[in-house]
Nucleic acid binder design. Structure first.
Length: 311
DNA sequence: AATTACGTCAACCGCTACTAT
DNA sequence: GATAGTAGCGGTTGACGTAAT
């Protein structure tokens, strides 16, 4: 035989707490301290279950709870901890003084998760995803480099393989209507899976043409940036997008390491230390986060981009 | 001004690990 | 050792406020 039930559930009150109930609970805990939630409601004169009292105290009434919007530093801490701990909200909350697991969980689901998705970062794996390629803008530029099928084939493992498969078909057809058709199909299909060794292949098989090593993927990115024309709305774009079938953490870490090898900054710091991109003259922390990460995963090729040199 | 859609967040639900009987 | 309660956690819900139409 176990213990007797902690309370009569039929007589319990549910729903939002009233100020009177809050006052009773706060007064009781100030007098006796938290703990023994089982007997607390009866002693405090509350028609609530101990579980409900504990939740109300830990998530709302506790005096050390910090109220208000999460700061940039708190947000970056949550993202970094989540990349390590996953949905261990209590463990994350333990490292954020004044914030509750419930609050962090809510903030993650309503703000951070959406922002990461928008940036093309998988909120589960924290890995970038490459599954949307705006082919029309690349092809419509009529770049002589991209009209070369061999160049496209050589790019195949660097970019989205499925996307390039479509591109090859389009180039051979040179039919605008078909292009729009394919683009529509591609953008509505399930995103392709990037194999765990995807970036390994890039490093060991594709980049040797330029004597690039696994430690200099960052150079590769910078070489792209050198040809970026960010104000040209007609330039081609390669967009990374999230997907729940994402890369494993090893690949992600390798990519992070490669991207960071030249400037000694970690990938995490790329997220956490955005470079302001002030267009309108007013730049918020949120704008900075978003614009920087968008730039990180968006390559725009100018007309003068030498494709042969790149490949 | 009325209605609808969307976002937020406090509170509840259900599960697990641990503990008391 | 078996049984049942407790504490804590993560997922989900629904009421409420706000924005969009």
């Amino acid at each position: 035989m176990g213990r007797s039930p902690c309370c009569d559930k039929n007589a319990l009150k549910k729903g939002p707490w009233t100020p009177e109930e809050d006052a009773k609970l706060t007064h009781h805990i100030q007098m006796h301290g938290p703990g023994n939630w089982r007997s607390l409601p009866k002693i405090a004169g509350l028609e609530r279950c101990g579980k409900s009292c504990r939740l109300r105290w830990t998530n709302y009434l506790r005096p050390d709870i910090k109220r208000g919007r999460f700061s940039f530093e708190e947000e970056e801490t949550i993202i970094q901890l989540h990349s390590v701990l996953g949905n261990k909200w209590s463990a994350i909350a333990a490292r954020l003084p004044g914030r509750t697991d419930n609050e962090i969980k809510n903030y993650w689901n309503t703000h951070i998760r959406k922002r990461l998705l928008k940036m093309g970062i998988d909120p589960v794996t924290h890995a970038p995803r490459l599954d949307l390629l705006d082919l029309s803008s690349i092809l419509m530029n009529n770049s002589p480099h991209l009209n070369n099928l061999s160049n496209l084939i050589r790019l195949q493992t660097l970019l989205n393989p499925d996307a390039l498969r479509v591109a090859l078909t389009l180039l051979s057809s040179q039919n605008e209507n078909q292009l729009l058709n394919y683009q529509h199909q591609f953008q509505n299909q399930a995103p392709p899976v990037i194999q765990p060794n995807h970036f390994d292949n890039i490093i060991t098989q594709q980049i040797p043409l330029n004597n690039l090593t696994s430690s200099s993927l960052h150079n590769h990115y910078q070489s792209l940036q050198g040809h970026v024309c960010p104000t040209n709305p007609t330039a081609g774009q390669v967009l990374f997008h999230d997907n729940y079938t994402g890369m494993n953490s090893t690949t992600s870490d390798q990519t992070k390491q490669s991207l960071s090898s030249e400037n000694n900054s970690s990938f995490d710091s790329v997220i956490s230390t955005p470079q302001p991109c002030n267009i309108s003259g007013i730049t918020t922390a949120e704008d900075e986060r978003e614009s920087f990460c968008n730039d990180l995963f968006k390559f725009e090729f100018s007309e003068s981009f030498d494709f042969d040199d790149f490949v």
